Simulated assay, not measured.
Amino acid sequence: MPDPTRAPAWALLCEFTKTQPLRRHALSVEASMRALARRAGVADPAEVEAWGVVGMIHDFDYERFPTAQDHVFRGMEILRERGWPERIVRAVGAHANYSGIAPESPLERAIVAADELSGFVGACALVRPSKSVRDLPAESVVKKMKDKTFARSVDRGEIRRGAELVGLQLAELIALVIAAQLPLADALGVGGAAAPDLPDAPVPPEPPAA
């Protein structure tokens, strides 16, 4: 099977994920992954798409299988049963630091960098007076990382590990993720107003190139 495109990836996500926050997280991580692909020098649009697809589906099984005993492992099984390429399956597994899959390829390293930070940036935006990522400076995110009472479920160590894996300074990676979210701010619910629901179809617009 060739690398899947956004349409089957979105269909898979919506089949397993009904909650809007998880769907928005998928779009957020997809945008970050596309930005990381371009930052890494990926020029082939199909390869940029593959990175985005990994971002979109990395948590597709989480709603049904939320425990560390199941999450990513059940998802990987499903992907293999449906004939998804092994490099996509492996990248999905690599985003979980307990999976036993060491992130080795640029794609696998990028999903570690994109996952936790994409969610954390969104959380930082929502506590601003504007409730928007559009006026969120990277420095504010760095400061929030030091506040252990804020967004306690976010693993700061994973965010720092992700920056190291992709060879970026933490502030650089944060700025990249913020920039990736800007064009999608309204759809992600970080544009100052409540986000519209993301239906099963059609596929949401592709994040524009930065």
Rank of each mutant, 00 (worst) to 15 (best):
M56N: 09
M56G: 02
I57A: 10
I57M: 11
I57G: 07
H58F: 04
H58Y: 06
H58E: 09
D59A: 12
D59Q: 08
F60T: 02
F60N: 03
D61H: 02
D61Q: 01
D61E: 12
Y62A: 11
E63G: 04
E63H: 09
E63V: 02
R64C: 14
R64N: 12
F65N: 02
F65H: 05
F65W: 06
P66K: 13
T67H: 02
T67K: 02
T67A: 01
A68F: 13
Q69D: 12
Q69E: 14
D70E: 15
H71C: 09
V72N: 14
V72R: 15
V72P: 13
V72Q: 15
F73Q: 14
F73A: 07
F73D: 05
F73T: 08
F73I: 05
R74P: 09
R74A: 04
R74S: 12
G75P: 05
G75Y: 01
G75S: 10
M76K: 05
M76Y: 01
M76E: 13
E77T: 12
E77M: 10
I78L: 08
I78K: 07
I78E: 14
L79P: 02
R80N: 07
E81Q: 09
E81A: 15
R82F: 12
R82C: 03
R82V: 00
G83H: 10
G83Y: 07
W84F: 12
W84E: 04
W84N: 09
P85T: 04
E86T: 05
E86F: 03
R87S: 03
R87F: 03
R87G: 06
R87K: 13
I88E: 13
V89A: 12
V89R: 13
R90F: 00
R90P: 00
V92T: 11
V92W: 13
V92E: 12
G93I: 00
G93R: 06
G93T: 01
A94K: 02
A94H: 03
A94W: 00
H95S: 11
A96H: 08
A96K: 15
N97G: 08
N97V: 04
Y98K: 06
Y98D: 05
S99G: 10
G100H: 11
G100F: 06
G100S: 01
G100R: 07
I101T: 12
I101G: 04
A102H: 06
A102Y: 09
